[in-house]
Design a protein around this nucleic acid. Structure first.
Length: 857
RNA sequence: GCCGGAGUGGCGGAACAGGCAGACGCGGCGGACUUAAACUCCGCUGCCCGCAAGGGCGUCAGGGUUCGAAUCCCUGCUCCGGCACCA
């Protein structure tokens, strides 16, 4: 802790003063309280005077503690808010808690307390910690998603989506985590297919589940026009949607002893040009025709393979370079282009959920088909080759080139055509017979939202034996999550064990019925929470349309990139669904997105409570104060970069604030350790020095303003350090206390205010008091303007190069002419030495004489 | 394999549109203050040669464009993040 009793000795011209030391502990909580009392951060959403600016940062999950990673995202966001307010924007910066979810349930099971109790007590703690940052959240807008007043609207949305055909129930093989229950496609990660949250291996289960029809928006989701989002996120989402253009081709099954034939076997391909090279077909083991097409003598083997793919896929899929497996089913198909009979196989490398679940295998031109053909001795026929090569000879690998300078071979009438034209011709020909059509396929799946967990939003549906699926009437919302359920895990839905919850009367027929016992994916909560911030208390509907129209889309969103294809994708999808049911009039939720980097723990891993590698900022705050921590985090490096946590260097930032304190409060003091203290630099007049101070202050202002706008906080702070160091040099000289000095200190405080709000407010208020001016918060001041006349330089230093190598520098008047500058440069001793008698062949003055380069042979 | 991003001192990082590489900070060295230490302050600090003046070399590697390249182009390497047989 800083010793507050010690004083800095001063022996300046003014005489002895006692200046207390910078003690953040004594000032920060005082200002936080004052700002609270004044309602400095409360946003009047109806105010007409200033333009609205919705600034949003991703709300935290209430895991129990705010760690340094939270500071890393939140405090720069707060600096942006304060900066914008000083520019006259009416900034809305709300905060809330993503309060449903698995960790609460697990912690509750472990400690035998109710998830709600656990969550709410964490939230209380985190509210307190969040306040120590000095962040300007509007706490009146707070949203807690586990409140019935919030989740009832999840249910309401679900009912509207159901009515609009955007929510549906379907039974199919789904990804299932032993801890989390069902997962959406986006929530299964890695080649080994593990759960995004708990890491457990994901299995396949056949379940009836609820889906949201987000595939409706596939094309819209890859259109980012009008959005300022990081390239990386746009690329990830585009890949995730996975739009793929090609054609659907229709093969036909051949009559066999055991089956009548004539069934259509549709395949999707991006390479119709290779149709003549199809030497076999492969169906996904789950393909519906497998059952009828399989011949009696192959039946046993096929059944065994199908069973095996269902149970063993995860183990096999562990290997990235898996061996191809599969079995022939004892039936053939006809290639529509040439009538050729080719055998039908099943294999797990063909996925049931993509395309048509069946492929034409062209081993010569597809790596996977090539490997499969190699494993089972199936023929390989090259049909694309570079012109002149003929395509003879054995391929060692699949031949993948298919640019327009490749031609078709072994393709009957299409021989010699460029591959891409040939492909189009083949599709066109088959289309005449109804056997092909150009098709677009997507990787994106509908959003599976059912979860077999307790701690979430109950899905508002009732199952009646007579009426089937009956939505809960809107007037019966919310379907409350019972507090007393035995939520402890036993692999079954906790809500299914609560008879009082489970048994209801059918709203349609009045007969006995049962409630849905699944809850919603918690990503539903975060898919519209920012709309709710605008009217958290509203009871007649989820959102206040007038405020939504006025304040959204969000102008600037800040948060991590780890939810690139989860939250950030769901939020876009949900907004489009809200638009389609007519309750908002916007296509996109977030205009600008900024992804800050991650602060990693000492182990180099992402900080998380479950890993136990979090850094608690409380100790650091106690020692250095919130302002130092805020600045240090911003100074570490570019905000979008993050990096491993190390407190080394925090002292440098703290010293900077101390120096600022000194120049603001002890301008006439003398530095004991500096032999030049109190004297102007040799050869510099007071007038020169005053001009230099003013010039530096305004130049800094220009740079700092641009840096704030670009979120370049590290260089913004570096510039303020430079200015402070300069003022430190002039402290105790005749320049200290002049109007130029005074202006520089004032500007420095204003520039620092968004980033280090407490110390700047404290120094600001002391200056006002000293000047006898009534107090007004620095945070309600206008951002200062650069005085263009102040940044005009009388002279400038010109680097001189000879053949691109720096040889000399010369200081010249700013208004020097080109000819004069050339004369000055050529007269320099070092230049003449470097030229060594040679005649310059060219003299280049770059940037209007900012640099001179002399070219000699 | 595909997609995205990045390679600059001992370290974190600067360098806006091709024009002084290394701002700012950490660390290190030297000094002032102190009885002493801590704190604070001042100076030096890319590498090599040299007592110095000065010179040479330097932005992952190799080529290229240019009067001039950390920056643009080509080839390759390494690292980080994402995807996972997507036909």
């Amino acid at each position: 802790m800083t010793d507050t009793t010690e004083s800095t000795k001063t022996t300046g011209a003014i005489g002895r003063t006692r200046v207390e030391r910078y003690d953040p502990a004594s000032i920060e909580s005082r200002w936080q309280k004052k700002w609270d009392e004044l309602g400095l951060h409360r946003t009047d959403l109806h105010e007409e005077g200033r333009p609205p600016y919705y600034l949003l940062t991703m709300y935290p999950y209430p895991s129990g503690d705010i760690h340094i990673g939270h500071w890393y995202i939140i405090t720069p966001t707060d600096a942006i808010a304060r900066f914008l307010r000083m520019h006259g924007e009416n900034v809305f910066l709300p905060i809330g808690f993503d309060a449903f979810g698995l960790p609460a349930e697990n912690a509750a099971i472990k400690n035998n307390i109710n998830p709600r109790t656990w969550t709410m007590s964490n939230i209380d703690n985190m509210r307190r910690q969040l306040r120590t940052m000095g962040a300007t959240f509007d706490w009146e807008a707070e949203v807690v998603t586990a409140d019935p007043d919030y989740y009832r609207w999840n249910q309401w949305f679900f009912l509207q989506f159901f009515k609009a055909g955007l929510a549906y129930r379907q039974t199919s093989a789904v990804d299932w985590c032993p801890n989390d229950g069902t997962l959406a496609r986006e929530q299964v990660e890695g080649a080994d297919r593990h759960c995004w949250r708990c890491g457990a291996k994901v299995e396949k289960r056949d379940l009836a589940q609820w889906y949201l029809k987000v595939t409706n928006y596939a094309d819209e989701l890859i259109d980012f026009s009008g959005l300022e989002w990081p390239e990386a996120i746009k690329a990830q989402q585009t890949n995730w949607v996975g739009r793929s253009e090609g054609a659907e081709l229709v093969f036909t099954t051949v009559v066999d002893d055991h089956q009548p034939g004539g069934d259509e076997l549709r395949v999707f391909t991006t390479r119709p040009d290779t149709l003549f090279g199809a030497t076999f077909m492969v169906l996904a083991p789950e393909h519906p025709l497998v059952a009828t097409l399989t011949s009696p003598e192959r039946r046993a083997e096929v059944d065994a393979y199908v069973a095996r793919t269902q149970t063993e896929t995860e183990i096999e899929r562990l290997s990235t370079d898996r061996e191809k497996t599969g079995v022939a089913i004892g039936a053939d198909a006809v290639n529509p282009i040439n009538g050729e009979r080719i055998p039908i196989w099943i294999a797990d490398y063909v996925l049931a959920g993509y395309g048509t679940g069946a492929i034409m295998a062209v081993p010569a031109h597809d790596e996977r088909d090539f490997a499969f053909a190699g494993a089972f001795g199936l023929p390989v026929r090259q049909v694309v080759a570079s012109p002149g090569s003929g395509g003879g000879g054995e391929l060692e690998d699949a031949y993948l080139a298919h640019a327009s300078d490749e031609v078709l071979v072994n393709s009957g009438p299409y021989d010699g055509m460029p591959a891409d034209d040939g492909g189009r011709a083949i599709v066109a020909k088959l289309a005449e017979q109804g056997k092909a059509k150009p098709t677009v396929t997507y990787r994106l799946r509908d959003w599976l939202i059912s979860r077999q967990r307790y701690w979430g939003t109950p899905i508002p549906v009732i199952y009646c034996e007579r009426d089937g699926i009956v939505p809960v009437p809107e007037e019966d919302l919310p379907v409350r999550l019972p507090d007393t359920v035995d939520y402890r895990g036993s692999g079954e839905n906790p809500l299914g064990r609560d008879e009082a919850f489970l048994n209801v009367t059918c709203p349609k027929c009045g007969g006995p019925a049962r409630r849905e016992t699944d809850t919603m994916d918690t990503f539903i909560d975060s898919s519209w929470y920012w709309f709710r911030y605008l009217s958290p208390e509203k009871s007649g509907g989820p959102i206040d349309r007038a405020l939504v129209d006025r304040w959204t889309p969000v102008r600037q969103y800040t948060g991590g990139s780890e939810h690139a294809v989860m939250h950030l994708l769901y939020a876009r999808e949900f907004t489009k669904m809200m638009r389609d049911i007519g309750i908002v009039d916007q296509d996109e939720p977030f205009i600008r997105l900024f992804n800050q980097g991650q602060i990693l723990g000492l182990d180099g891993e992402r900080m998380s409570k479950s890993r136990g590698n979090t850094v608690d900022p409380d100790d650091l705050v106690a020692r250095y104060g919130a302002d130092t921590i805020r600045l240090f985090l911003m100074f570490m490096g570019p905000w979008d970069q993050g990096g491993p946590w190390s407190p080394t260097g925090i002292g440098g930032v703290h010293r900077f604030l101390n120096r600022l304190w000194t120049i603001a409060l002890d301008q006439h003091g003398l530095e004991g350790g500096d032999p030049d203290a109190g004297t102007l630099p040799a050869g510099e007049s007071e007038a020169d020095a005053r001009t230099a101070v003013r010039n530096a202050a305004h130049r800094t202002l220009g740079g700092v303003t641009a840096d704030y706008e670009a979120f370049h906080f590290n260089t913004m702070i570096a510039k303020l350090m430079e200015l402070t160091n300069l003022l430190m040099r002039y402290r105790g000289t005749s320049v200290a206390g002049t109007s130029e000095w005074d202006e520089a200190v004032r500007l420095a405080l204003l520039m620092l205010a968004p980033a280090a709000p407490h110390i700047s407010e404290e120094l600001w208020s002391r200056r006002l008091q000293a000047a006898g001016v009534p107090w007004a918060s620095i945070h309600s001041q206008s951002w200062p303007d650069v005085d263009p006349t102040a940044v005009i330089e009388e002279t400038r230093e010109v680097p001189i190069q000879v053949n691109g190598k720096l040889r000399d520098k010369v200081t010249v008047p700013t208004r020097i002419s080109e000819i004069e500058l050339e004369q000055v440069v050529l007269a320099r001793d070092k230049v003449r030495a470097a030229l060594d008698g040679r005649e310059p062949s060219k003299i280049i003055q770059a940037g209007g004489g900012r640099l001179v380069n002399i070219v000699v042979r």
